[in-house]
């Protein structure tokens, strides 16, 4: 199993470092039944997403068929095969948030960030998704950026919130 032949794209050391880190994690799990999902989780955390090359790398390192790896990756919506932004915005479109303006927020984000639903901004800052009820109906319309819920959002409030992310990479 010569994984170096696999990836000619890993010339820069940043990339190589990530692969080494993933390799270390795989070494911890190797031989354990049903470890694929954990490995994929860790790999996505390190690499940001799970491109074809990385899926093949994981398949070879775990000695399982590639089609099995891609089968699991494509089954769970948490896994992404496309690059993800630094932050993930999820606009809630559950019933409460929807009627209180969630849809307007979606349109607003699409316009101001110039990003399609499910896509990532060209500067790689945000990945934009919608959620079906995040359980914060009392705070409608709610959005999530990464793990934080923001309540009663309006386009204006959203603009200043996003500006903060651009200023210092977060609100905290």
């Amino acid at each position: 199993m010569d994984s170096n032949v696999l990836c000619k794209c890993r010339e820069d050391s940043e990339e190589q470092k990530k692969y080494d880190e993933i390799r270390n994690i795989i070494d911890l799990y190797r031989g354990k039944e049903g470890c694929l999902i954990q490995v994929l989780h860790a790999a996505q955390k390190i690499y940001g997403y799970l491109p074809l090359e990385l899926q093949r790398f994981i398949a070879d390192a775990l000695n399982i068929p590639f089609s099995e790896v891609s089968g699991v990756v494509s089954f769970y919506s948490f896994f992404s095969v496309k690059p993800r932004g630094e932050h993930t915005i999820r606009v809630c479109l559950g019933t409460a948030c929807y009627v209180r303006g969630g849809k307007k927020l979606v349109e607003h984000i699409q316009k101001t960030l110039d990003v399609e639903l499910g896509g990532t901004t060209s500067d790689g800052k945000f990945t934009f998704e919608v959620a079906r009820c995040i359980g914060a109906c009392g705070l409608a319309p709610a959005i999530m950026i990464d793990d934080v819920v923001y309540k009663q959002m309006t386009p204006t409030k959203l603009d200043s919130l996003l500006a903060k992310f651009y200023e210092r990479g977060g609100e905290k």
Binding site: L52, S70, G71, F75, Y76
Partner: peptide, 20 residues
């Protein structure tokens, strides 16, 4: 033992194929 075909995607979108 070659493992070319496996289930991809989920639910209504499920297809049997080599992946990606």
């Amino acid at each position: 033992g070659v493992g070319i075909l496996n289930a991809q995607n989920r639910g209504f979108e499920t297809v049997i194929g080599p992946g990606m």
